[in-house]
């Protein structure tokens, strides 16, 4: 069976078309708290030119963004803010954990610093480095684009798969020293959120 189509008509799946649109217009939300933020700015600036990948439109309102780039360490006082900003972003949304501190706490293994944001919010891509070079961040964005193109659906069904519901690392992975104090048990920080 042959369908006569003009040369300028391409047949595709709607899912792939949506993913193609999404992956080439990622709007990053820069959650930059430390030196990784400087590299993030360099990535967006003219030499590395994130605009080549359609991701140069940094917006400082989570309502307008669909890619959160957490660049730098997140302290426990900041975490409710981070979670709130993540909740304020519209679906579909993705998260890049940029640098050692955001991914694991880095050298800051102290009481105040969260040991990896993937314990508390979903993370799609990790960038190693302290801080990572802009090329590494660009690579992460390109990998994320591949991921979006590969598994994206127009209804966002890929986000409801079982693998994406779990925090990446178990909370028991790092030992909790002593007993959590009563005021810091789960849920006490609801008022800050």
């Amino acid at each position: 069976m042959a369908i006569e189509l003009p040369d300028n008509v391409v047949v595709s799946k709607l899912d792939e078309l949506a993913s193609w649109c999404r992956k080439n217009s990622l709007w990053p939300m820069p959650f930059a708290t430390a030196c990784c933020g400087i590299e993030l700015m360099a990535t967006g600036a003219s030499r590395h030119d994130l605009a080549r990948f359609g991701a140069e439109v940094f917006r400082f309102s989570p309502r307008q963004c669909d890619l959160m780039i957490v660049a730098g360490r997140v302290v426990m006082k900041m975490l409710p803010v981070l979670q709130r900003i993540w909740q304020q972003m519209h679906e579909p949304k993705w998260c890049i954990s940029m640098g050692a501190c955001a991914s694991t706490g880095g050298v800051f293994d102290t009481y105040a610093v969260v040991q990896g944001i993937d314990r508390f919010i979903p993370v799609d891509m990790y960038v190693p480095g302290c801080p990572p070079r802009p090329e590494q961040l660009i690579q992460a964005i390109m990998d994320l684009q591949d991921k979006i193109q590969r598994e994206g659906t127009i209804m966002g069904d890929e986000f409801s798969t079982q693998a994406r519901q779990q925090p990446k690392r178990a909370l028991v992975e790092l030992p909790i020293i002593g007993r959590p104090s009563a005021a810091c048990v789960r849920g006490t920080y609801e008022g800050l959120r």
Binding site: L79, Y111, A112, R119, P167, I176, I177, G178, R186, G187
Partner: peptide, 26 residues
Amino acid sequence: HPLRKDYPLQGRGERHNFPVLTRAEA
């Protein structure tokens, strides 16, 4: 009072005990 010497460097679990946001919740 975290700068007291008898307070452990890694805390008493304060940095761990937050609600976890999953994809379904956000």
